[in-house]
Amino acid sequence: MKNLIASLAAVLLLVLPVAAHAGTVTVKGSDTMVILGQRWAEELMKKNPSIKLQVTGGGSGVGLSALINGTTDIAMSSRPMKDSEGEKLRTRFNTTGTEISVAKDGVTFYVNESNPVDALTMDQLKGIYLGDITNWKQVGGPDAPIVVYSRENSSGTYVFVKDNLLNGDDYTSTAQTLPGTAAVVNAVAKEKHGIGYGGAAYAKGVKELKLKKGNEALAPSAENIKSGKYPLSRDLYFYLRNKPTGDAKAFIDFALSPEGQALVTKVGYFPVK
Rank of each mutant, 00 (worst) to 15 (best):
E208L: 06
G131R: 05
A20V: 12
A103H: 09
Y237R: 02
G59S: 05
L36I: 11
A175R: 02
V15Q: 08
K204I: 14
A200G: 04
K46H: 01
T71L: 04
E259W: 01
I68K: 02
T24L: 07
S150W: 03
A189W: 01
A103T: 10
A248T: 07
Y202H: 15
E191P: 00
G198W: 08
S257R: 04
A9V: 02
S7M: 09
E113S: 14
K52C: 06
V25A: 07
A219R: 04
A203L: 08
K213R: 03
V34K: 09
S233V: 06
M1Y: 03
L130M: 12
P142S: 08
S77P: 09
Y149F: 07
Y171N: 10
Q176M: 09
L236I: 10
E87A: 15
M76I: 06
S101I: 14
L120S: 07
A222V: 07
G199K: 06
T95Q: 11
D143E: 14
N3L: 05
T32H: 04
A103I: 10
K104A: 15
I100D: 00
Y230M: 07
A182H: 03
E191R: 03
V147L: 06
V184H: 01
S257N: 09
K126M: 06
N135E: 06
F238E: 08
S221W: 00
G59K: 04
V188N: 04
D169H: 14
P220F: 02
L44I: 01
P116C: 12
S155I: 10
S155N: 11
P142Q: 08
K104D: 12
E113P: 05
V267I: 15
R234K: 14
Q261W: 03
G168C: 15
L178D: 01
V267N: 01
R92D: 07
R151H: 14
